[in-house]
Simulated assay, not measured.
Amino acid sequence: MSTRTLYLFSSAAPPVFDIARVVEDAQADGWDVCLGLTPTAARWLGPSLDGLAALTGHPVRWDYRLPGEPEVWPQPDAVLAAPLTFGTFNRWALGITDTYVVGVMAEGIGKRIPMVAMPCVNAAYVQHPQFERSVATLRGAGVTVLYGEDGFLPHHPGQGDPAAYPWRVALDAVRDLPSRV
Rank of each mutant, 00 (worst) to 15 (best):
Met1Pro: 00
Thr3Met: 06
Arg4Lys: 10
Arg4Phe: 13
Thr5His: 09
Tyr7Pro: 00
Ser10Phe: 04
Ala12Asn: 11
Ala20Met: 10
Arg21Cys: 09
Asp25Gly: 11
Trp31Cys: 05
Val33Lys: 02
Gly36Trp: 05
Leu37Cys: 01
Leu37Trp: 06
Thr38Ile: 02
Thr38Cys: 02
Pro39His: 14
Thr40Val: 08
Ala41Ser: 01
Trp44Thr: 06
Leu45Gly: 00
Leu45Ala: 01
Ser48Arg: 14
Gly51Asn: 07
Arg61Tyr: 06
Arg61Ile: 07
Asp63Asn: 13
Glu69Trp: 01
Glu69Ile: 00
Pro74Cys: 11
Gln75Lys: 13
Val79Pro: 00
Leu80Lys: 07
Leu80Thr: 01
Ala82Val: 08
Pro83Ser: 02
Pro83Ile: 08
Leu84Ala: 07
Leu84Asn: 01
Phe86Gln: 01
Asn90Gln: 02
Asn90Lys: 04
Trp92Leu: 15
Ala93Pro: 00
Leu94Val: 13
Gly95Ala: 07
Asp98Glu: 12
Thr99Val: 11
Val101Ile: 14
Val102Phe: 04
Gly103Tyr: 14
Gly108Asn: 10
Ile109Gly: 02
Ile109Met: 04
Lys111Trp: 05
Arg112Thr: 01
Pro114Gly: 06
Met115Glu: 12
Val116Gly: 05
Val116Ser: 07
Ala117Leu: 08
Pro119Ala: 14
Ala123Phe: 04
Ala123Cys: 03
Val126Asn: 02
Gln127Glu: 12
Leu138Ala: 15
Gly140Ile: 13
Leu146Tyr: 00
Leu146Ile: 13
Leu146Met: 06
Gly148Pro: 00
Glu149Val: 08
Asp150Pro: 03
Gly151Ile: 12
Pro154Arg: 07
Pro157Gly: 06
Pro157Leu: 10
Asp161Ser: 06
Ala163Asp: 08
Tyr165Ile: 03
Tyr165Lys: 02
Pro166Arg: 10
Trp167His: 05
Val169Asn: 01
Arg175Ala: 09
Arg175Trp: 03
Pro178Gly: 03
